[in-house]
Design a protein around this nucleic acid. Structure first.
Lengths: 357, 357
DNA sequence: CTGAAAGCGCTTACAG
DNA sequence: CTGAAAGCGCTTACAG
């Protein structure tokens, strides 16, 4: 006797369930999978037996047989971050609609962990993986050669061997910069990663930075290094630290574009702390339109895109990839838009923000 | 040929792996499970064969055989909430340390979904479930009779049939109320659920409310209904709406205890919006010490407890429960403490907040 | 339309 | 210390 005691209903399709219903396992299976060709009466008999025995199918067995578990993996650097939490929430809602289960894993932004997750996807009983990588060049996707599992990348990775869903972060960065300038800013600073000197220009942050440079340049303004602050941790703490660093430099600036909303919230805090007013002295914006963004003080201007849409596309791509591994890799762009809130309100005509800022 | 093409390494322990290594499946298994009694030389042979074939064990098969999947389910109302995101992050870190995988599910605070998750735990290939229920009286735990899977509850549920981990919310509520009063407040309002008239006094919110009443009463102050606002959604939006409702009542209050940090952040926003200053006019506090709490403006006084500790205890209880279903249910209390920040700074001696507030 | 049988990849009694 | 065999619960060719 190997099964758990009190757990006889495990053996339904090939066990006592068919005895109760008086049909073959094949018929039970037909009922379960909804296959055609089961008489109404037979179906009813099987279903009542299932209820009577409180039958629940054993997905491990089904998974073993089918090579599918019905579970997909979702990997990101840190669920605790506001943006990640929002995306994860959207993912779970969509997954629930579709009846798929989600196994979550964190990579802590470590390429090694990204690599492990992909190479162990099979082991982890997931049919595929939706991965939000952070750094490309040393990341797993570069090493995906040996029998990669179905993988969909989320994010602005310049990568053409894998399906991916992305927002055009370069265009979004430009949009932010132009918005700040149109609101009256002349010295626009940025808080983010992927700055000059860093290796990962191709990734999200690099694109946002490039877009920023595009934007200020198109408006005929400079984008000097002194206005660019590297933020290591894309968290509120990281943003606050980055903002303090910028203030310490004692260079003039009248707007700050933070490359995530969390960074922007940290920046807002550090500005408050320093007695710098937003938007009177400095305009601030973020990226992602996290839930909290509309409730900071002042409310935060940000680049928004539909998180559910983002996730839905990723799950579609993954489902298609699981069904057919031979199709060529595809990339789906999710539209974005700037949501202007009070943190970037234009100054009254003729108003000049206090010097030194 | 049923296996995926190019996937021959699945059949290792009882397949070609043992041929390559020239040993029996039993020996391979001994190596895999780290059992004693395998000669060093043999072990090395097996391990090199595993590397050569790029072997990864098939957990579905192992799960089918063992009745264990190595996956545990984690269910909560909404991962998008700051507190949930933080707990989830802690959960994933602890799970990673321990080599267990986490399947996340949302209940949307619907008792039906809580019930479904528990009753389908087996189906979902999880060895057990850590559940953060929201409403007890119509919740699943009341119906847990028929072969419940191993379940650990997280939260202040008054429930003695299931293992659980909790914070003493009643004591924490009292602590908050006493703190406010000690800081000079006399008319302390609350923003939360579980208020008089609601059915779920037993749950978290009800305990926090009861603690608040304990606290103001012990200090000889009243806790009138007019100072208690029901907040349906425990989100920032919900908190802002609740605060606006309180302002609309036009009753005097000089402190607000919000029953979660998210609610407190919404309250802070609505107070700003109304031009009410914190802490000069009104003191504010929250619960949970979410990441953002130290970075609101002003920084938020809150009740903190160690999220990793919380999660670790829950996973310990679950592991023990999975190993032995016969032990009696246990409850573990996680210590808490009040973290005072600027949002509840005492008024200067003799200062009287503007009337009407 | 339905039945009997094999097999997915593991692990563990049970013999040697 | 090691080998041969059975079985976990499902599903799907393959026959009837």
């Amino acid at each position: 006797m190997q099964g758990l005691p009190g757990d006889p209903d495990h053996a339904f399709a090939a066990g006592e369930g068919d005895l109760v219903a008086g049909v073959s396992p094949k018929t039970v299976s037909n009922v379960l999978t909804g296959a055609a060709g089961v008489r109404q009466q037979t179906r009813a008999k099987v279903e009542s037996a299932m209820v009577e025995l409180d039958f629940v199918p054993n997905l491990s067995a089904r998974g073993l047989r089918n090579g599918r578990s019905g579970v997909i993996g979702f990997a990101l650097p840190d669920v605790g971050t506001a943006f990640s939490a929002s995306i994860t929430h959207a993912m779970l809602e969509v997954a629930h609609e579709r009846g798929v289960m989600i196994q979550i894993e964190e990579t802590a932004a470590e390429p090694e962990r990204e690599y492990d997750l992909v190479s162990r996807a099979r082991t982890h009983q997931v049919d595929g993986l939706i991965l939000n990588p952070v750094r490309l060049e040393d990341s797993v996707v570069e090493r995906l050669d040996h029998l990669p599992p179905p993988v969909v990348l989320i994010g602005e990775v310049e990568q053409h061997r894998t399906d991916r869903v992305f927002v055009n972060s370069r265009a979004a960065g430009r949009l932010s910069a132009e918005h700040m300038i149109d609101q009256g800013a002349r010295r626009v600073a940025v808080l983010g990663g992927g700055l000059a000197g860093s290796e990962d220009r191709k990734a999200t942050m690099g694109q946002r930075l490039q877009g920023y440079i595009d934007g200020v340049t198109r408006r005929g303004l400079p984008a000097p290094d002194e206005l660019q602050v590297e933020v290591i941790e894309w968290t509120i703490e990281g943003g606050a630290a980055g903002m303090r660093e910028l203030l310490r430099r004692e260079v003039a600036f009248d707007a700050v574009i933070a490359f995530t909303d969390s960074i922007a919230m940290g920046a807002l805090y550090a500005l408050h702390e320093a007695g710098v007013r937003v938007p009177e002295d400095v305009l601030v914006s973020g990226f992602d339109d996290v839930q909290h963004a509309a409730y900071t003080w002042p409310p935060l201007t940000t680049v928004r895109f539909d998180h559910h849409h983002y996730v839905r596309e990723a799950m579609d791509l993954l489902a298609e990839r699981i069904a057919d591994r031979s199709i060529g890799p595809r990339a789906v762009e999710i539209p974005h838009a700037l949501t202007a809130r009070r943190s970037s309100d234009a100054w009254p005509a003729g108003y000049v923000p206090p010097s030194g800022r």
